[in-house]
Every structure is written in C-alpha cells, then in structure tokens.
Computed example of a mutant assay.
Amino acid sequence: MLIRTKKFQISPKELRGIIAVDYYKRMKLTLIIFSVLTVVNIIISIIQKEFSWWLLYCLGFIAYILSVPLWLRLQGRTSELNFQSRYCEMDEDFFTIFFEDGSISKLRYEHFVKVIKKSEYYFLYITKVQFHYLPVAAFESEKDMHRFDLFLEGKQLIKLW
C-alpha cells in the first residue's frame, strides 16, 4: 500500500476555526442543559421576585464554555511546520510528511496515540495534545482514502463503525 496525497496547506486561523467548531459541537449538550437551567432560574427569580445566585453561576459557566476557544493557543499543540505547504505518503510502515522547505517527518504508526476522523479532515495525534492535520480533500481518490481508513482501523487507531 502506497498512498500519496496532493499538496495542502492550512493557516493558523483556519486550524483554530476547525478546532473551535469541533469544541462547540462536543459541548453542545452541556450548553443546552445550562441554557435551560439559566432560563428556568430566570423564570423562578421573576416569579419569586428575588435574586438567585444559581443564575449567576449558570451564566458564568456558559460564558466560560463559550470563551474557551478564544484562549486557544496552537503553540504546543502543533508545530510551525504544519502551516507550510506539504504532502504525505503512507505505506505499511511509515507515515511520511514532505514539507515545502525540504524537511521530512517520518513516523511509524506505533507513534500515533489516536486518530480522529471527521468528514473533512483527520487529526493524527502523536501525544495527547499534539497532532498532524490531514484534510480529506488531499487524497487523490476516494479509494485511497478508504484504503487509508481500513489501514488505520487495522492498526486500531480509528473505529469506522
């Protein structure tokens, strides 16, 4: 199996946006629950005509959850190399990244902690917080992407079902 991707590049702003959208999707249920609790607290406060401190706690928690992506720093999570133009080659033993400046990063699949696949991209984690970004659009064909998915599933890095 040899799979080669097209060249791709992402800016820090685009990557920050992708991470923020993913975070908000994961926190959606929590935001809904706390929004409902806040509305219930407002209604109870109006009916009883007295201030509830729980309302302040709920509003503070909602503000905290909504503001977390604004504090996001990509330093430490991903290398500056990840914002250069690059392409990848995958074979049975190595995941290799060829950067525009001539640098090469060659990783064994055992070095990946986990792989997260979304509809438009892969995050290939090498630690709990550091990852390599790989867009789905970079694959030459649907067949290459499917082969890569099956290979990752075989290495138990991703679950397809």
Rank of each mutant, 00 (worst) to 15 (best):
G60E: 05
N82A: 13
L72S: 07
L37F: 06
Y121R: 14
Y57R: 02
V129M: 08
L74E: 00
W71M: 05
I47S: 13
L81W: 01
Y57E: 02
Y121G: 11
T78H: 03
Y64D: 11
F95M: 11
L59H: 02
W53K: 08
V68S: 09
A63C: 05
F131Y: 13
I126V: 09
I126R: 12
L59E: 04
Q48G: 05
V115F: 03
I44N: 06
Q75W: 00
E89W: 00
Y109W: 06
E120M: 15
E80T: 11
I104L: 04
F112M: 15
I65F: 10
K114Q: 14
K114D: 12
W71Y: 08
D101P: 00
I126P: 11
Q130G: 01
L70I: 03
W54Q: 03
R77L: 10
G60M: 09
T96N: 02
R86W: 00
I65G: 04
I104T: 13
I44H: 03
G76D: 03
S79L: 13
I104A: 04
D93V: 02
I47A: 14
I47T: 12
Y122F: 15
L66V: 14
F131K: 08
V39R: 01
S35V: 07
Q84E: 15
K49T: 01
R77P: 04
T96R: 04
E89A: 02
H111A: 05
F83V: 07
L66Y: 14
L124T: 04
S67L: 03
S45F: 09
L72G: 11
S103N: 15
F95I: 03
P69G: 15
V36E: 01
C58I: 01
R73E: 04
G60K: 02
R73W: 08
R77V: 02
L124V: 08
Y57N: 04
L74I: 00
V129A: 12
S105A: 14
V39A: 14
R73A: 02
I47Q: 11
E100P: 01
K117F: 12
L59S: 09
K114G: 06
R73S: 01
S119D: 14
Y125A: 12
Y125Q: 13
W71F: 07
R77K: 09
L74A: 06
F95N: 04
V39F: 10
F123E: 13
V40K: 04
V115H: 06
S52E: 10
V129E: 10
L74V: 00
L72M: 15
L70F: 12
F95V: 06
V40A: 11
T96A: 01
G102Q: 09
S103M: 13
E92R: 06
G76A: 05
I47R: 14
Q48L: 09
Q130V: 07
E50W: 15
K128E: 15
I46A: 10
Y109N: 12
F131V: 05
M90T: 05
E50G: 13
K118I: 06
C58P: 00
F123R: 12
F112N: 13
L37D: 08
S105L: 13
E92W: 00
W71R: 10
I104Y: 06
R77M: 05
L74R: 03
F94C: 02
F83P: 03
V40W: 06
Y122N: 12
V39Q: 04
S103W: 07
